[in-house]
Computed example of a mutant assay.
Amino acid sequence: MIKARIKPPAMPVRMLPSALTVAAICLGMTSVKMALDGLPTQAMAFLAVAAILDALDGRVARMLKATSKMGEEIDSLADAVNFGVAPAFIVYATLLSHSQLGWIVVLLYAVCIVLRLARFNALLDVDQPAYEKEYFVGMPAPAGAIGTIVPLAAKMQFPGPWWDGVAAEWVVIVWMIGVSLLVVSRIPMRKIHTFTVSPNMVAPLLALVAIGVAASVFYGYIVIMVIAVAYVIHIPFAVRTKHWVAAHPESWDDKPRQRRAQRRAIRRAQPHRRSMARLGLRKPPLR
């Protein structure tokens, strides 16, 4: 029996993912130009569009079956530019240009992003349990880029003379150092696409997405700050769930929803076991 051969996509189609990546690089560098020209709002907007294109290129490549080694390398370089170099320049041009430590801090952030991307690429060839693929090691580069522009979003939303003082300078410096350390840390952080949604929550979630899109148009600066705060809040939960999964090898092949059901069952059983331990019982008393 002769199997039908699947023809690879035509060359223009195969170039589409790489074209999206190149466009993302151009937009990321344009965001730097906007910041240097004193247009911070436009700089953040171009950076956001660059991040969207960067997120789409890989998915388009998989949909078209047009993945290639060159495409992977271009995507990695685009991440370094869009999430490392561009945010660093934006923060320096808008917040730290008059600071003696400003350039050192933004260099630290850019280097940490490059190191984080190098570690990510190195871990792709390492055999790991399936559950490890549900977590990032350290803060991912896009989240790091959002984190760096939070002070700028706060300045645009709440302008005032305070931002010209020494206190604001040190707040931004400490914030940038904190984001840089999170980027190169080994703290587990959950990948967004691994979250499961109950069928009953699909409609409310879509309504929430619509509200978020509308809010990003009229209250973009606040949305940036809310996203950053929500991401920081999720970190302890990601650490806890990963530790639980690592301690229960029997759950490694289960889906996230099944794991959550197991964790809930264990938590419900723990108070009962503690109460029996206080009474010196090993099993429930007979009734």
Rank of each mutant, 00 (worst) to 15 (best):
E134Q: 12
V150K: 03
A110P: 00
A110F: 01
G178N: 10
T148P: 00
P161S: 13
A143E: 02
L115E: 06
L181S: 10
S180I: 09
A110Q: 00
M176P: 01
V171A: 14
A122G: 05
P161E: 12
I146G: 02
A110W: 00
A110G: 07
I104M: 13
Y135P: 04
M156V: 12
G160H: 07
A141G: 03
L107S: 14
Y131V: 08
P161T: 13
A118T: 07
G138T: 08
S180G: 13
E169A: 11
V105L: 15
L181I: 12
E169C: 11
I146Y: 02
V171I: 15
D127E: 15
G165W: 12
V174T: 15
A143D: 01
V111D: 03
I177N: 10
A118I: 01
A154Y: 00
L124V: 11
V137L: 11
I177R: 05
V111P: 07
G138V: 04
L152H: 02
G178C: 12
P161Y: 02
L124E: 12
R116A: 09
A143M: 09
M176K: 04
A168S: 12
V137K: 03
S180W: 05
L117D: 01
A168E: 10
V106N: 02
L108F: 12
P161N: 11
L115Y: 03
W163Y: 06
P140N: 08
V171D: 09
D164P: 02
W170K: 05
N121W: 07
V172A: 08
I173W: 08
A145Q: 03
Q128R: 14
G144D: 03
V126R: 10
C112I: 05
F136Q: 02
D164K: 11
G138H: 04
V183H: 01
A168M: 10
I104V: 15
F120R: 01
Y131R: 05
F136T: 02
G147S: 08
G144R: 03
L181K: 07
L123P: 01
A141S: 13
D164W: 08
A130D: 15
L181H: 10
V137M: 12
V172H: 03
I113M: 11
L124I: 13
L115R: 05
L115H: 04
E169P: 06
T148W: 02
P142N: 05
P140L: 06
K155E: 06
W175C: 14
T148R: 06
Q157D: 13
V172E: 04
M176Y: 02
